[in-house]
């Protein structure tokens, strides 16, 4: 845990939605093969920051940013950056489940097909593996031909996790991936994350303090667009340097 090589580095990153500044001067280094939790009250900019990392904001009109975000010491905003490749490397599970209205199977097979990650005959195995990892296989193994949108909210959430996993990213951005899950499914996702961090770098946004404390190695606390505190989870939860962090994690606000 000590040799922390950062894959992702945010340098004085600032972000505006039109005239409204959503992020102020975000600087942090997200270590490789570890789980980093982003916590903070609603509307503080966690999603905005997460979506910056895979340049999802490119689609949104009227936004701008300054500062820099570097992946493997290369700016993701540098001219000539292959955004498509970046997004394949940095997978994302959105705050709201957004499965395609295609069969469950095709949802999971979407990435492997798109990026030609595997020959067609290996697809069924991959789909099954991803669905197992996302703790969804048992529930959908007889419903693979049904549309993904016909699943329950929590199942859709896990379907989106499976879809992201099947695409073999190097880094996973998860925006409240357990918000609609029951405790058992949540536990299985947490186990999955801990298992995945051997090979992936994971950033997870969560409103669940216990979850952040349980699974993450590093924690960042956002407050009204500022990254107030960033450090190892142990330090942030036991010896926070900022009183707002302490107030938040002890539940005194937010």
């Amino acid at each position: 845990m000590n040799e922390t090589t950062a894959v992702l580095e945010s340098r004085a990153y600032i972000f505006w939605y039109g005239p409204a500044q959503a992020l102020h001067d975000i600087s942090c280094a997200i270590p490789t093969n570890a789980i980093t939790a982003l916590i903070g009250p609603s509307g503080c900019g966690k999603t905005t920051f997460l979506r910056s990392i895979n340049r999802m904001h490119d689609l949104t009109p009227g936004v701008r940013h300054s500062g820099d975000i570097q992946l493997d010491a290369e700016s993701i905003f540098a001219p000539g950056t292959d955004v498509v490749a970046l997004r394949q490397r940095v997978g994302m599970v959105f705050q709201r489940p957004n499965p395609f209205p295609k069969p469950v199977y095709d949802n999971v097979a979407y990435g492997p097909r798109l990026n030609v990650l595997a020959p067609p005959r290996e697809l069924p195995d991959r789909v099954e593996r991803a669905l197992r990892q996302a703790a969804l296989w048992d529930e959908v193994k007889d419903r693979l031909r049904e549309p993904g949108t016909a699943l329950s909210g929590g199942q859709q959430q896990r379907l989106c996790i499976a879809r992201a996993l099947a695409n073999e990213p190097e880094m996973l951005l998860l925006d409240e991936p357990c918000s609609a899950l029951d405790p058992i499914a949540t536990q299985r996702i947490e186990e999955l994350l801990v298992e995945l961090k051997q090979t992936y770098t994971i950033v997870i946004v969560t409103h669940n303090m216990q979850q952040a404390a349980r699974v993450s190695d590093y924690t960042g606390f956002f407050y009204v667009g500022h990254l107030v505190e960033f450090g190892t989870t142990q330090q942030v939860f036991t010896r926070p340097t900022d009183e707002r962090t302490e107030a938040y994690i002890t539940g005194r606000f937010g």
Binding site: A85, M92, A164
Partner: peptide, 24 residues
């Protein structure tokens, strides 16, 4: 969110249209 789902998987704009927007 459908376009974003496709783009976040590494689809180009056109691939997102073809594989997500049009089928939807």
């Amino acid at each position: 969110s459908q376009r974003e789902a496709a783009l976040a998987m590494g689809a180009t704009r056109w691939e997102a249209v073809r594989s997500a927007v049009l089928p939807y």
